[in-house]
Design a protein around this nucleic acid. Sequence first.
RNA 1: GGCGCCUUCGUCAAGUGGUUAAGACACCGCCCUCUCACGGCGGGUUCAAGGGUUCGAAUCCCUUAGGCGUCACCA
Length: 479
Amino acid sequence: MNRIRTRFAPSPTGYMHIGNLRTALYAYLFAKSQGGDFILRIEDTDRARYVADAVEFIERTLAAAKIIPDEGPHQGGKFAPYVQSERMDIYKRCAEELVASGHAYRCFCAGEEAPTDGNKFGGYNRHCRDLSPAEVEKNLAEGKPYVIRQKMPLEGETTFYDVLHGNITIANSELEDQVLLKSDGMPTYNFANVVDDHLMEVSHIIRGTEFITSTPKHVLLYDFFGWELPTFIHLAPVMGKAADGTVSKLSKRHGATGFHDLIAAGYLPEAITNYVALLGWSPKNSCQEIFTMDELIAAFSLDGLSKSPAVFDYAKLDWMNGEYFKAMTDEDFADAAQDYLADFDAPRRIFLASLLKTRVAKLSDIPQMTAFLKVLPPFDAELFTNKRNKLTPQKSAEILAPAIKILEQADDWSLDALNAKIAAFVEESGLKVGTVMWPLRIALSMQKVTPGGVTEILYLLGKETSLIRLNDALNALRH
RNA sequence: GGCGCCUUCGUCAAGUGGUUAAGACACCGCCCUCUCACGGCGGGUUCAAGGGUUCGAAUCCCUUAGGCGUCACCA
């Protein structure tokens, strides 16, 4: 068997959709799991859609996701160049070869407005198919622009094997005489893709199902050239669920759908890759869900791929991202959250990291969780009411007053000392721990949910601020 | 509309003729707890519908329905 070689062949749009990332991941995982090669090829044959710096963007994104090509525009390789716009002479030569062998022909309707009801395919499909050599010569001599079209068999059917779907058969009469070479000399996707996959010795084509119906055309091309067929694997799409419950192909309307959108929202690259791997694939004989890249490579196999569409679930991504947070050291989390914790000095930053990492689904949750440390939310007496601890605003004031006295006398504001002080106060008062803690927490933060408990907040706020807040709350309660 | 693909809990999914139909997320309940979180325990009419084949079907066959894709000088 030949060497396993897969490829990721994006067009340079400057955006890495999560579905594309997954396609790249699976191609990479398969190649690596088989000891093969993974190559990156840029399909920039549409001049109108050219985006500056898109190639670097794609390379950086793959690097961030730890999907490293063995060959590509940046790392080169024996089949360079890996950018299609730099391979035009190759496509031209191959197209002419097909014209010569009678499997393709020049169509001189290029640039003309296509009829809407010419035939079942519309456009100028098959229009110039039977031009005489003399007519072709005449048009060429006149310098008329042309495209080269693939001459499809009119009868019979074409069957190809797909690893996920088995044999797929489509009648040749369903196939149009698709354009191979455009009038600007650029190849179409359907042509360049086949030529390059063959030339670059790609053994397994892993791509989305949207290409399933054009695959027979590709297969015919391989036949015309007498090339060996690669193995096809068509992946089900990644779907998104809208607010109204409808499911459709994942797109902007579903929220963040680009790798960088997710990074910007505070998800870790490893968590994104991990989650995306499980969206349409699952390991055999195992229920493992948290995977390093190496573990993914070791566990990956084609028969774990799912053939039905998968809905992207932000809730599960949140969970998985949280698992990665919890596995991090406080220092690593503080580093990752650096941009969100810039307002705190180093020791506080590490301490906050330890409190935050089990409470936050994504980094961007940090600001709203820590905002109270900077600015106290407006006073709300109702927050002091707590059924479980049998607390009312009045009762809270009764607890706050002596507690403030004790804290005012504290000269050691360390966590341990604060803990001891409060514990002693609780014991003395004969109240339940929760009953004492509740009014303190509310007075200090004005919110029911806080990172850490009362001692942690006291410590973070410092003595001065803590006492100001406590006294303010007490006054407000008595008012 | 033609052609093609898909269909197991709300979501990701295991499952390949005989299982109490795994597991995870989410949800709900309980426990733990200085709130939340973390952790622990428990809960839920899930095989699209209808026909077959079979002693036996989520697994095999047919029909229907729904969803998705595709019908470009875009990929």
